[in-house]
Amino acid sequence: METWHEIAWKTWEKEQLEAQPSLIQEAVKFLDEERRAVWIERLGRPSSACARTMVRYIHSGATPWLVTPGLSWDIAEVPSAVFMAYPAPLGNDPLAMLGLGLLWAQNRPERLQDVVDKVGVAAIWAAWEGQMSVRVGASLWRSFVAHFGENRTDAPVQKFFASVTHVDVPVPQIAWGDFPNYQAYYDQLCYGVVPHDPGGASPHDIAAVLLALHFVPTPVRSMASHLATKALEGHLLTRAWHRAVTGPQEGEQTQW
């Protein structure tokens, strides 16, 4: 016979899940009892607009990402979804929220390549900005250093990854592309306008916007985070608008 505690937990779980879409109701069934309660409680809190925007930009794979604020980074993959939590205080910063991509990729080469294809070298800075475990970006860092050299980063990032030498991870073959020229976007962020291209067009290079954000001085960082998020939203909207007007391009991802 069930104790009243067991009944109470089941009732709470049922009530919490009633407000959630069927996708979540089905996905949590794959989690063990203890983890299920943790994720159900987290999923009751809405994720930040910035986190949702970043997920729209970097999402890869066939399964949806269910992103919630928490107190630390966490991930649980089940067949029908990927549960991910990020540190809530960092939720309004797009470079920190890029950490969701690293969290998903871990040290798997094909996934790391997916992330780099979308955000280039900014992925390296995201590990530091997101206060992630150094293990998460370890193999990406080694690949970066092999390709660009350590000196293309600044002191905080080098210090952050210094302990990577003690982490046993392979060095993946990553096609990095060019190092972005972020100066114009940096100037715009410091001045206090949403990063843009000539004529008011949305930035064509999101990696450059995110990298520029890293170098913005701390006193204006919060404001710059909002401006950079707005630029990312504009980039996504412009892409979606163009697709709606002209139709999807061949091979283009049209759903998140």
Partner: peptide, 8 residues
């Protein structure tokens, strides 16, 4: 004069 994003 900044107006961004200019979708059209």
């Amino acid at each position: 004069l900044v107006v961004t994003p200019l979708l059209s």
